[in-house]
Design a protein around this nucleic acid. Sequence first.
DNA 1: ACAAATGATACTAATATGGTATCATTAATT
DNA 2: AATTAATGATACCATATTAGTATCATTTGT
Lengths: 130, 130
Amino acid sequence: MKLITRNTDYALRALCYMSKHQDIISVDELVNKLGVPRPFMRKILQRLNQERILASYKGQGGGFKLKLKPDRIYMIQIMRIFQGNVGLNGCFLKKGICPDKVRCVLRKKIHAIEDSVFRQLGKINIVSLI
Amino acid sequence: MKLITRNTDYALRALCYMSKHQDIISVDELVNKLGVPRPFMRKILQRLNQERILASYKGQGGGFKLKLKPDRIYMIQIMRIFQGNVGLNGCFLKKGICPDKVRCVLRKKIHAIEDSVFRQLGKINIVSLI
DNA sequence: ACAAATGATACTAATATGGTATCATTAATT
DNA sequence: AATTAATGATACCATATTAGTATCATTTGT
Ligand code: FES
Ligand code: FES
């Protein structure tokens, strides 16, 4: 079990790099600096563009640029984009067996743990990673 | 992204049930109470037996019984069994690009978060779940 | 001997992850 | 205007993990 996946990891590293070089950066440059497979890196950056974390510039001399300030980009946000809404797994028990979702202690406990994880992740932004 | 998987979930629920009924419990009983697919439940219990958390009794009237006291069985232990050693994902960058693993801030940060998660999971035992 | 349980193990199905490949679109350079 | 260097969109493929099934062997109480 791993807490963060590759695309999250690569995204974070790309964002870190871009926050150090505030001009327009091409995929090629990132690929060279980070050693990530080119098409995969592209996919990740395109996604970050769709999510309005990056701005993209087409055509010659184009590339990507941070749209937000590095201290406004949080790790949890990137994780949510690439790993889905990190949430409590639903109760797997069949109907009629799960007795009372609202009061289920197991559920509550897991929820509390997750809350704490999110609070911590919510504190970490790109600035704190560079 | 989910923090716990089905087999962990089912295992926890089975252990909770068994800690309330300290005699020998058959797979059938657990299946009926929890609504988990029978062969899957068996596999899970067999694993818990191998891991010496349960004791098993073969033959007629057989089944499983807690081998440890409920306050000695921790959630993190069950997660490790079914979800692997929950640990820091390695650096994905190619050699020559990852500059200095020891000092990598990203690595340190993630490690700190994980540590905290484990500390919390390490506090939760079966007793606290029932 | 028989039936009722688990042990061991191999197999299958579904989903998530980690990519590739391709063609369209845009915009600077010539 | 043509070329070229970039991204946009999308479909596809490969691998790993998760979730579950199936089968036969072994043990043990009746
Ligand atoms: S048993 Fe359904 S939420 Fe706990
Ligand atoms: S870049 Fe390799 S551990 Fe951070």
